[in-house]
Design a protein around this nucleic acid. Sequence first.
DNA 1: TAGATTGTTAATCGATTAACAATC
DNA 2: TAGATTGTTAATCGATTAACAATC
Lengths: 214, 214
Amino acid sequence: MQKIPHSTVQRLVLCYSLAQKALTRGDMYLRSQDIAALLQVDETQIRKDMAIVGIGGVQKRGYPVHRVVQRLEELFAVRMEKLAALIGVGNLGRALLNYPGFAKYGVRIVCAFDRDPEKVGREVNRVFVYPIEALGEVIPRFGVQMAILAIPPHSAQEVADALVALGVRGIWNFSSALLRVPREVAVRNECLESGLLLLLHKMWGENHVSFPKE
Amino acid sequence: MQKIPHSTVQRLVLCYSLAQKALTRGDMYLRSQDIAALLQVDETQIRKDMAIVGIGGVQKRGYPVHRVVQRLEELFAVRMEKLAALIGVGNLGRALLNYPGFAKYGVRIVCAFDRDPEKVGREVNRVFVYPIEALGEVIPRFGVQMAILAIPPHSAQEVADALVALGVRGIWNFSSALLRVPREVAVRNECLESGLLLLLHKMWGENHVSFPKE
DNA sequence: TAGATTGTTAATCGATTAACAATC
DNA sequence: TAGATTGTTAATCGATTAACAATC
């Protein structure tokens, strides 16, 4: 199959969530028109996206919800169980541990790591916290495939290198560090600082006068 | 000034973080080549981005770090004090309250809201938690300009409508709901579910066979 | 049948990259 | 001066939108 454009994947993520909602509502079909309105894009775009991943529609009805859900679950590999490690059990890390979204998408956090001796040796949400030095022993033991990085940026690259060396295939990076990893390792940057700055730009960016604090 | 393309703004966010780092290191200049390598884009792109926002470089040296920082602080309005409300004091909300990034960019959370009577009336990190019903009274009293939405998706639109009616100009949306707001209100979606699915796609997407759990 | 929808090809638009001029 | 860099214009590439055919 041809490579799926990244912009298409982004829209399909949203389609997936819409399709799940439609499924619980009991709707049989989703029309490109309605999806497009919610995503605020052109409806042709949605039809093209569907075609790209091989989801066919039915004239006068729309796209069969169950087929959309099925195909997109395949595309996002949500029915496959994925074992994950959480690195950094700070405020954000703990919030992620309690996050209901993971289980829903087949991600199971099986171990956590922290540098702080206060946190090491305890359980958070039934997940044991290991010292960061134990990475090399614990990651292979559990067969961890992906890591969630919720640590300060200064040590992020070092930890990422270790994770990659241990065979981790994907990193969900909440630090502001720009990680360098081999091509075959997937990284998703979820830097909140960046998100905040993008919002601030939308709010006050461009042609405005910025008043200094003092 | 012409409209700044969104892709340019995204790169400039990263440039800002690099420039700050360079500033603390004491570097005088940043070369487009080096920035490009870290961002993994073409160096011409960086020069174009700089030109678009009016940052001029110096031949044989690069871009003066202090000017980059200064101009981008203006672009992201970070020196301006922005009063924010946190809606939803769950795990994620509490993590955000303790988040050091906010103060750094001039965002001050002045009040928090929750539906849970258990949480209402208490202080979290020196911020008072109001009942969600008090939104209409409290938001104008504090002069809140932006809101951080960390609530479940089903009530997100309703709360967003209320916030917009109260004059809030920007919403940092951590829920998975796709909010509909008037054009003049800025929204940044920070839906973690979406981020996770994008990572899963990169890891196992495309031409793979997905093994069901059972 | 008429109308509403999907599906596809062509046109447009915008973003990235290449080529090279300018200059310290 | 030669070389390294910025700056800019032109070429390419990819994504979006428009037009319209196909069909239930």
